[in-house]
Nucleic acid binder design. Structure first.
Lengths: 340, 340
DNA sequence: TGAGGGCTCTGCAACGATGCAGACATAATG
DNA sequence: CATTATGTCTGCATCGTTGCAGAGCCCTCA
């Protein structure tokens, strides 16, 4: 099972271990003749360097970890794809772990026995762990936070401008003439900072349009899955004065809402217009296709990886707060049938 | 940056390195008094074991790699989730890489400079690399193949019975009385074994029902994404005698087909019924919801991880071919409106 | 009293690689 | 011809940990 080591190759080629290493790495000058002889033995034995040993010696692994709440949530899967691609461009590979939104599991990652020491850095999309906790852990490895939460400058942080994104989405609905715009996805408690930012944007759009917000149109959801979007929409439809539009805090909620509207026989967007956030691919093919606020995921991943690698190299000053651009993509769920 | 080592702790506590190691691991007996003293220093310095060093010494890393074509394809994302969960149950973490269906990248994984030596085992969902190539590489680490391809017994292999799955899906459509059942997703070339198995099942269902297959209803697609499903469906609708049902080789193709049908104003399932394969969550919330053949993904992941770990422990005899159960889930795309 | 045994604790070697300093042979130089 | 430079190659130490063998020490029991 265990492959040949430098020692095995050296013995067989009658040279020093060091010379074999030099041939493998092309470091020091080796005469052509000897190089050829060693290379022949390397090929013959099919030598592969033991990366663990190399890592130990060099103090780095070339691996970063990406920690997300749930990998099968399309947004995170698409983001993970971009992170893997961005990391590969720098010669890094990515270990992915999911916390299931479980705060204990997030904390475990930072604890005594975590595997964190095996990675050169950590990209974390936290759900419930707080900045204080992160700081208090005396973490050994560089961390960059993705997307969620506010972290008062303790850690590098890459995200879209959540307030602006929500404002843009809501303004789009108001511009269409909708006057009862609901919001699905608020989280009015400690770990719901991102959701609260979106609620702020939702309110700002109303204020700027000179309109009042009807608080009964704001529905909270503990997480952002399709089912909760559908349930929230059903509750909204049961109101005495149901909404004529809904801003969902992510695309999954929106797709759930669309499902509920369709079942209830409502026409989209004629009766109710729907907007989401994330621009997951699914929204392009749903019926109707989904208007959404699209974060630039590629850019987000690249900036996050770049920042993490800078931090690993020790080139990072004070933790940057990086804002990635977003744009509104209008599709059928607000614009109605679009000719192909 | 570098944390304290056993040596640092030992020096400070005035004991041997070995004793500190014993305290950390609870291996050998250490008197309560000394244990407490060492533990105090461990806490004070916030010691974390260097896992790379530990790995080097022990010859294992506790990491396995999962290689899939595309992580943002929902099936693979959902599968990855299950794999991560199954691996965690055994104390393993999972490194995920994607090949983008690029054969060269798949081969790279097995090549001289791959990081494969860093992992205890490899779960591979190959797209274009062949069994011969895999075998020829003289791989160092245990491999278990997931889902796709036929591999004539060279490697452990976990998958559903693709012929039966396709037969069940097609039979369901025929049972509904459909007589022009199309198939989207055939791949009549070397690396399309899985697709070909599904075509076989599609034909078997017809044969068993005493029906002829109209070959013009079988549409090939080089991959299994939504867009190709939509395009294939458009071609089928343009036929002089369009189909009254379609079996798509995965759910993404089916969702694309549904999208094309909806745009074309066809009613589902009244005009055309649709079945997919994979049971991705998206299909529960699409309009209409999607009838599909559901592989038991949890079981698939567990069996794959179990088999890989057996192989790692050297407990595996001849490479098993493990067949995981599947079942047909009937939803609106074939059954019409289902009361809630 | 002294051999034997258990309990703690320790030092050395090793995992497989790379950094460093230097050895050796040959070539260039004054 | 002696000296320095040059180009190859090697051995030793080291990364941080654990396996192994054994050293003390105290206690027990003949």
């Amino acid at each position: 099972m265990a492959g040949p080591t430098l020692r095995d190759v050296a013995k067989r080629a009658n040279v020093s271990i060091r010379t074999v290493s030099n041939v493998v790495n092309g470091y020091a000058p080796v005469s052509d003749e000897l190089r050829a002889r060693v290379q022949a033995v390397l090929d013959e034995l099919d030598y592969r360097p033991n990366l663990i040993a190399r890592n130990l010696k060099q103090g780095r692994t070339g691996m970063i970890a990406l920690v997300v709440p749930e990998l099968d949530v399309p947004y995170f899967a698409e983001l993970a794809r971009e992170v893997i691609t961005a990391a590969r461009a720098h010669g890094y590979v990515v270990m992915i772990d999911q916390t299931d939104g479980d705060g204990d599991r997030e904390r475990e990652l930072l604890g005594r026995d975590s595997r964190a020491t095996m990675f050169d850095g950590l990209l974390l999309s936290p759900l419930s762990v707080s900045a204080e906790e992160l700081r208090g852990r005396g973490n050994r490895i560089p961390i960059v936070l993705l997307g969620e939460h506010i972290f008062n400058g303790s850690f590098p942080h890459v995200a879209i401008d959540n307030v602006a994104a929500a404002r843009d989405a809501t303004a789009h609905l108001l511009d269409l003439g909708r006057r009862r715009v609901a919001a699905i996805g608020d989280q009015p408690y400690a770990t719901g900072e991102t959701a609260q930012l979106r609620t702020t944007g939702y309110r700002q759009a109303h204020t700027r349009a000179g309109l009042e917000v009807d608080d009964s149109l704001i529905v909270s959801t503990p997480h952002f899955h399709r089912r909760l979007g559908a349930e929230a929409m059903e509750r909204l439809l049961a109101l005495p004065e149901p909404p004529d539009a809904v801003f969902c805090y992510n695309d999954l909620l929106a797709l759930g809402a669309i499902r509920a509207l369709t079942r209830a026989g409502r026409r989209i967007p004629d009766d109710v217009a729907v907007v989401g956030v994330d621009d997951i691919e699914e929204g392009q093919y749903s019926t109707p296709s989904l208007t959404t606020v699209a974060p630039d995921k590629g850019e987000l991943a690249r900036r996050a990886v770049d920042t993490l690698l800078e931090s690993i190299r020790g080139e990072l000053g004070s933790p940057p707060e990086i804002v990635v651009p977003h744009r509104l993509i209008v599709r059928e769920s607000t614009a109605g049938e679009i000719p192909v």
